[in-house]
Nucleic acid binder design. Structure first.
Lengths: 245, 245
DNA sequence: AGAATAGTGTCTGTCAGACATTATGAC
DNA sequence: GTCATAATGTCTGACAGACACTATTCT
């Protein structure tokens, strides 16, 4: 048949299964700071392939459940942590013929920033264990299944880049926090110490925080508690923070 | 059968076609500056769906030809422009159930920066026309097929962001260029004028250019020609350029 | 009072913006 | 010489780093 076809006719005869398609999954590096260390959530795979190996949480897009790839990422995040409103950001997509033994595969990698005490770890039938692990024990070595060490590295790099010119790390803290706690988060990600006065000036001048009116008391001078002003969770500075040493 | 399975056995019985998979494509916003305007390459679709409509160049990953998604993007770029070594950068992936009438579909969007005189426009059986169009005539309106206006907007935003803190726009020029020409490129993307002295100081201090020794002569004082020092095509500045007005 | 942490005052250095000035070509 | 564009000199302002200082709590 060579007569022109309408789009409707075209779609009627079009069959997805006539073509070879890659597998498509979503993987997430879920970051939190625990005991002054950047941690990432990893799961022990309960299913083939790479059964028994550690990997980033993730899995295939479920075409009947997920309306969008962001939905899929949120579903995976909530499935492992119970967290539904974390900062979730697409980082990179990786696709090639060799990364998954099941065939040509594409994964869309996300990073999530959560406060550790907002998380309730949950296993499911895809993962027999779910644990926080310090990133510095994983990044470089090839400890994770598939290419997840590489993917983690990309996400870690994105986070390290953004800490220098955004206020994004506020998402790693609970709603109320002190400036010292916030500074500590920045120092942990930067892996450098930060000068106190410059840090406070930078954050306070950006007008992204407001005082809660409460204080965190220790055995020393109590510190003012702050919270993020509505929708100011990702301020971009015009100059990088570099830190000292 | 409930006895434990090896990975090999698992893979033997695993069949991709047992699962519903999204369509996966690559789309590219190929940018160049022509007549002091930021242009993007668009194609008139020769095939259904959206036949006859304008769209970004792109198409499905070919599992037997492309080893990686970057390969696929390079293939599409070369197919329309003949350019094989341009700056090509992954921007964002978009996937949902509604963007393509053929079904649940994911596209990995790239942007490419090319010098217009390195390009030889080529049609093929997927596109009956291939043309440069000023971005400001497309961005906001919904002129492009599928969600390509949105995707173009994401790529345009990435470019506008990067012009403020990187030297990336050098990729929009031919190998040899004057500082005034480079400044013009920055101004076009920023949509702002840039102060000459600051611009030169910024670029020259970054040590990303070297003098060719030649000059571009007009009817006025000839300008020094520069080229990019090897592998210095994407310098990151610690402070943003903002421009005036 | 002393220890410890919170928070400020203020100087310096770097780099972008502003704008005046000089340099070099064609005519 | 004039005109046009290339290139520089130099002042200002914004903001990060350094570091000494003060403030507030507990014991």
């Amino acid at each position: 048949m060579t007569s022109p076809q309408t789009e409707k006719q075209f779609l009627k005869t079009y069959n997805i299964h006539d073509y070879d398609l890659p597998l498509v999954s979503v993987d997430i590096a879920i970051f939190s700071v625990i005991d002054d260390k950047l941690n990432v959530l990893i799961v022990k795979r309960a299913q083939h392939p790479r059964k028994g190996k550690w990997a980033l949480p993730g899995g295939f897009i479920n075409l009947s459940v997920d309306k969008t790839i962001d939905d899929a990422a949120h579903r995976k995040l909530a499935g492992k942590t119970g967290v539904t409103n974390a900062h979730l950001e697409q980082v990179v997509s990786v696709g090639n013929s060799t990364r998954d033994p099941r065939g040509w595969s594409v994964t869309i990698a996300y990073m999530a920033l959560v406060s550790v005490d907002a998380v309730v770890l949950k296993k499911d039938d895809s993962s027999e264990e779910v644990v926080w692990t310090p990133v510095d024990r994983l990044s470089k070595n090839h400890n994770l299944a598939f290419d997840h060490s590489k993917i983690l590295e990309s996400c870690h790099k994105r986070l390290k880049d953004k800490v220098r010119y955004t206020s994004l790390p506020v998402n790693l803290l609970p709603p109320d926090f002190t400036l010292t706690e916030l500074q500590r988060i920045f120092e942990v990600i930067l892996a450098k110490s930060v000068e106190k006065k410059s840090f406070r000036r930078r954050i306070l001048d950006a007008q992204i925080l407001e005082e809660t009116g409460n204080f965190r008391g220790g055995s020393t001078r109590p510190a003012k508690l702050y919270r993020v002003t509505d929708n100011k969770t990702n301020h971009f500075f015009t100059r990088n923070i570099e830190g000292t040493r």
